[in-house]
Structures are given as C-alpha cells and as structure tokens.
Simulated scan of single mutants.
Amino acid sequence: MEELQARHRKEQRDLQSRITQKKKQASKKTRKGVNDECDKLEAELKGRHAVETAALNGEPNAHGTEPLTEQLDDLTLKVDDEDATPRTNGTQHVKDFNELASSQEQQTANGTSQTKKPNKAKARLAKRALEQEERARQAAEEAKNLPDLKQQERERMLEYMTERGLREKEIRADGHCLYSAVADQLEQLQIPLGSTPGDKPTLAYKTVRAAAAEYIERHLDDFGPFLEEPLPEYLHKIRETGEWGGQLELMALAKSYGIDINVLQDFGRVEKIESGAGRKEEVMWLGYYKHGFGLGEHYNSLRKAG
C-alpha cells in the first residue's frame, strides 16, 4: 500500500505539473477547452487511483467479484508508459476492470490458466523496435530518390578518359589499389619495379610499397612535417599492411621511379605530381574515384587506348 500511495502521489504531482503548463500556454480563446481537458485528466487519474486502491485492499467491484491485481497491471500499462495517451474518462477504468474480472472468472471456471502479467520492459522494447524499423524504412525510401553518385562519377570519368585516349584497367579494391595501379603502369612503361630478386606479378604491389617506404625514410626532411604519427609506425603501415596510399606515397613513388604521375579525377581534373627527373615523354596515368567502390576512395590504372 505504501508503494501504491507513493506512486499515486508522484502521478498527482506529475499531472499537476502538466496542468499548470497547459494553463500557462492557454490563450483567452483556448482557456475553456484547456480547463475542460484538465478536469478530465484529473477525473481520470482519480478514478484509476480509486480502482487500484480497491484492488489492493481486496474490495469487491461493481459485480461483486474480487479484483484481479494482475489484470489491473495490464489495464494501467499504457498509462504508466511515458509515451501513452491517457484515457479521457476516469470511470472507463472501472468498466474495463470489471469486464476483465468477469472474463477472468469465466476462464477459471472453464479450467483455463490465468493470463500472465505483461512485461512492461518487453513492451517498451518492442515498441522501440517497431519505431526503428519504421525509421529504417523511411530512410530506404528517401535513398531511392537520391542521385546515383557512383554511376554519375563513372560516366564522367569514362568520358574524360576517351578525350585523352585512355582506357581503364580495373584494380582490385583491397587497400593496395594505389600500389597495384602504379605497378601496372610501371609494367606498361617498362620501368623495373625494383631490385628485389624473385618478384612475382601477384606481389608487385609489395615491391611498390617497399619503394615508397624506403624513399620516405631516406628523405625524412621532406616528408616528416606531414606525418601525423611516429615514422616507424607510418613505415610499418606502408610496408606490411593494407593501409591506403595517398598524396605522400604518390610523391614518394614519382621521385623513387623518376616519372611524373597524372591523376585523373571527376569532372576532368588532373592532378600532376612531378618527379623532377625531366622525362616528360613518359607519364604515368592513374584514375581516382571518390564514390565508385565499396571501400570508398579508389585508384585504377589508365592505359593508352588501342
């Protein structure tokens, strides 16, 4: 009883707070309607509290049957839920409760088992799951109306490749794409990958990775200011992992192999990375994609068409 009375006092305080807020926000035109609504809310709460108190005390209801506390919990489930809409008539609780009591008596007479007390936590979780599912459905619906950035980027890239007499050699999107694309270009230009004996074509990207790491290590004054982590860790990622390559690695490879690198990007932009070797007759071409592949940014090798 103490717990019930404490909950009743809290519900009364919460309702009074809501009523005060509603009345503060009411205008002259809406004041009468707000007052009527507040009276209904107070009557509803008072009626429910009376039913709950009677149920706990074991008092008979209008039908002369013993109140069922387990069914009462089911009756007040939505009222306890912070998202529930309160009933508009306090006497409705008494009616619903009596109907549930009569139904329970008949089930007992027929030898059926009593209804189990509902789990409020599970009910709330189920409600949230439905809300999340609905949000996901709406997001998927909105995504259908978004432009296909991948397809648009690819169409533009193919157009600019054709203008420059280039064709695409697709490189596997596995984190080694920049190094594999450079290795393919070196092969097309007949430039040796390196002096390591026993290199295999399937491992060519490892040789290119090693060349980039070695050049950065030997020219730390040029690259050190741009590193965001200690040099040993950075070099380890280049040599031994599938860490993506970027601007610094392209600069190191252009210098290491003594060849300019042109990177064709969306909308026809070409980023030129000069080697300083002065061999203008030979240029390496790479294609850079921002949206085209599952891992995100990606490089392909661009060979001469024909």
Rank of each mutant, 00 (worst) to 15 (best):
N119V: 01
T88W: 02
D83L: 04
P118N: 09
Q104N: 09
A84I: 01
S103T: 15
N119E: 04
E105K: 05
F97V: 00
Q114L: 03
S102D: 12
S103E: 13
Q106H: 08
G111D: 13
K117N: 04
S103Q: 08
Q106T: 15
A101C: 14
T88V: 12
F97N: 10
T112W: 08
F97A: 14
N98P: 08
G90Q: 07
Q106D: 11
S102F: 14
G90I: 05
T85W: 09
S113P: 12
S113N: 12
N110G: 14
Q92H: 10
P118I: 00
R87K: 09
T112H: 00
Q107A: 04
T108E: 13
T108M: 05
D96L: 15
G111R: 13
S113I: 06
S102E: 12
L100W: 01
R87I: 01
E105L: 08
T91C: 13
Q114W: 00
N119G: 00
Q107S: 04
T112P: 10
G111Q: 01
N110I: 00
A84L: 07
N89L: 13
D83G: 11
G111T: 02
L100K: 01
Q92G: 12
T88R: 06
T112I: 00
D96I: 13
F97C: 11
Q114S: 05
Q114G: 01
Q106W: 03
S113G: 10
H93G: 03
H93C: 07
L100T: 00
Q104D: 08
A84D: 00
Q104W: 03
S103Y: 08
D96E: 08
T85Y: 05
T108R: 05
G90Y: 09
L100E: 10
S113Q: 04
K117R: 09
F97W: 10
N110H: 10
K117V: 03
H93M: 09
F97E: 15
K117D: 08
A84E: 03
A84N: 01
E105S: 12
N98E: 15
A101P: 10
Q114R: 01
Q107L: 06
T88S: 09
Q107E: 03
K116S: 02
E99W: 10
Q107C: 06
A84P: 01
E99A: 15
S102M: 07
R87Y: 11
D96H: 10
K95L: 14
F97I: 00
V94F: 15
T91Q: 14
G111K: 01
N89A: 11
A109M: 07
P86D: 08
T91S: 12
D96P: 06
G111L: 04
N98V: 03
T91E: 09
E105Q: 05
N110T: 04
Q114E: 02
E105N: 06
G90A: 05
T108G: 10
N89I: 12
N89T: 11
T85L: 13
K116I: 14
N89K: 13
S102H: 11
N110S: 14
H93R: 12
Q104L: 07
K95T: 07
T108A: 06
T115K: 08
S103A: 09
N119R: 00
S103H: 03
S113D: 02
Q104T: 10
D83H: 07
F97Y: 14
G111S: 02
T88H: 08
K95V: 06
